[in-house]
């Protein structure tokens, strides 16, 4: 019988430091994990446990990239690891993904993305696969908020993305030396830049940022069905059994982690 808890061995082939406590790891796999943007995998290290992470790399590649903050026992150990070391990976999990097939992004719809902190992670896959997933003419607008300029993920890639018809607007929480851009929460970007017309919204970030962004989007006339958010929850099994990630009638791991606001708006504890 198939064992959903069995992981495959994955070898670290590349590490890049993103911020003082976030690193990007690339893992080579024996058997490709074929995933869609929005899904996640469970990474484990014997003795240190297991935790869910959303891939952030190009989904076409055979390897998997995870962007991990040093935040606990498992991730601290991972941060100590070097190229050549091995971890366990299982997945992909999640049926709720960014709805790329629901809309005609190639011709009809544009994409608005609002992300904060590590919330950028699951959307990098979408940006890297933009030409296949969205179409070259699709307008993509990203509002990204981070604590400080040094906390911005993937920042060496921004220039390349801007050349690909992506409008990237940045903000940092507080004013700081050397930063000439916008300061304040992600929502302040709504006052400075016009949100791209005729678009679908994808949101991902810390829970505190969801309500203010939803308010802005609703004022702009976005329908609840056209706003998508990725939920963060504690997860153990990844397959809708252990109950940790339950949100009302849904399991974040199985039915999500990406949900439309129409699905979540009546659930009190959702965001």
């Amino acid at each position: 019988m198939n064992n959903p808890y069995e992981s495959q061995s994955a070898r670290i082939s590349f590490i890049s430091r993103q911020t003082d406590n976030i690193k990007l790891f690339r893992f080579e796999l024996g058997k490709k994990i074929k995933y869609q943007p929005g899904q996640f995998v469970e990474l484990s290290l014997p003795g240190f446990g297991e935790a869910p992470f959303a891939p952030c790399g190009d989904a076409k590649e055979n390897y998997i990239e995870l962007c991990v903050r040093n935040a606990g026992k498992l991730t601290a150990k991972l941060h100590e690891m070097k190229v050549g070391d091995k971890v366990g990976l299982r997945g992909p999990f999640g049926n709720g993904v960014w709805p790329l097939n629901k809309y005609d992004f190639k011709k009809q719809k544009n994409l608005f993305i609002a992300v904060g902190g590590l919330g950028f992670v699951p959307l990098r896959t979408l940006i890297l696969g933009k030409d296949d997933l969205l179409g070259s003419g699709t307008k993509v607008q990203i509002f990204y908020g981070a604590k400080s300029p040094d906390d911005m993920l993937f920042r060496h890639e921004y220039d390349r993305w801007k050349k690909q018809n992506i409008q990237l607007e940045l903000t940092v929480d507080k004013e700081c030396v050397g930063w000439k851009g916008c300061t304040g929460l992600v929502t302040t970007l709504f006052d400075k830049h016009e949100v791209v017309q005729n678009s679908v919204a994808f949101i991902c970030g810390p829970p505190v940022m969801y309500r203010p962004i939803l308010e802005k989007l609703q004022k702009l006339g976005f329908a609840d069905e056209d706003i998508y958010l990725s939920l963060e929850r504690r997860m153990h099994c990844g397959i809708g059994v252990c109950q940790h990630c339950a949100v009302g009638p849904y399991y974040t791991c199985k039915d999500g982690p990406v949900f439309s606001w129409a699905q979540l708006k009546t659930i009190p504890e959702a965001i």
Binding site: G47, E50, V241
Partner: peptide, 19 residues
């Protein structure tokens, strides 16, 4: 009630244990 958690429990021998 069947909620569960999954943990790694190290044994005395270094690098060994059970999930």
């Amino acid at each position: 009630c069947f909620c569960f958690r999954i943990d790694d429990k190290p044994a005395l021998k270094e690098g060994a244990g059970k999930r």
